[in-house]
């Protein structure tokens, strides 16, 4: 797997400046634009095109905090994904089960106010988890398997994301 930080030429860190990231992506995309290679030999055109695709893929990974965290962990040699990560805590599972059931109840009642209140509470949590992960990534050696300490919060972040995806689908359903 290609290192997305290297592809975009940005520092491998969790707290990336979104503006700088977008700027790097724009500059590289411009430099690799097919128009610039219109008169170039076929091999060069192909190469620039595949580089442009890599740049777009890397940008998508780094924009998403979950995938960015996964990329940082992989670089440091920490396995991520199914079976590699610690089991979620019972408290988190209980809480997510309850919140998802409340969301389902709100949907059945067509209670948009409740859906939005639940969403806002989870958004607050998401910001807290992101901030805490940023601190953990900042104090850990970026190339050490000790980075595995962030895995429980990464798991939590995925649960929160699942909730928010579901909530936004319900909100759309109730407002249209």
């Amino acid at each position: 797997m290609i290192d997305p930080f290297q592809t975009l030429g940005v520092e491998a860190r969790f707290d990336l400046d979104p503006d700088e990231l977008a700027r790097r992506h724009r500059d590289l995309s411009r430099a690799l634009h097919p128009d610039r290679y219109a008169g170039a030999p076929a091999a060069e055109r192909r190469l620039s095109l595949s580089r442009a695709i890599e740049v777009n893929d890397a940008f998508r990974v780094l924009k998403d905090p979950i995938r960015r965290a996964e990329a940082l962990l992989r670089r440091a040699g920490v396995p991520v994904g199914e079976t590699a990560e610690p089991k979620p805590s019972p408290d988190l599972l209980m809480e997510m089960m309850e919140r998802r059931e409340e969301l389902g109840d709100a949907r059945r009642r067509k209670d948009l106010v409740a859906v939005r209140a639940l969403t806002e509470a989870i958004r607050v949590r998401e910001r807290e988890v992101l901030a805490s992960m940023g601190r953990q990534f900042a104090v850990s050696d970026p190339d050490s398997t000790k980075l595995a300490v962030v895995l429980p919060e990464l798991g939590e972040l995925r649960y929160l994301r699942r909730f928010l995806d579901e909530a936004s689908a319900i909100e759309e359903e109730l407002t249209t």
Binding site: P86, P90, L92, E101
Partner: peptide
Amino acid sequence: LVGAPACGDVMRLQIKVSDAGVIEDAKFK
């Protein structure tokens, strides 16, 4: 109550067991 952190799945499975040790009912969410 179990979960898969890599995909954010959560699963609850419950059994109701008779005095004879037979599962009379099972529910999930």
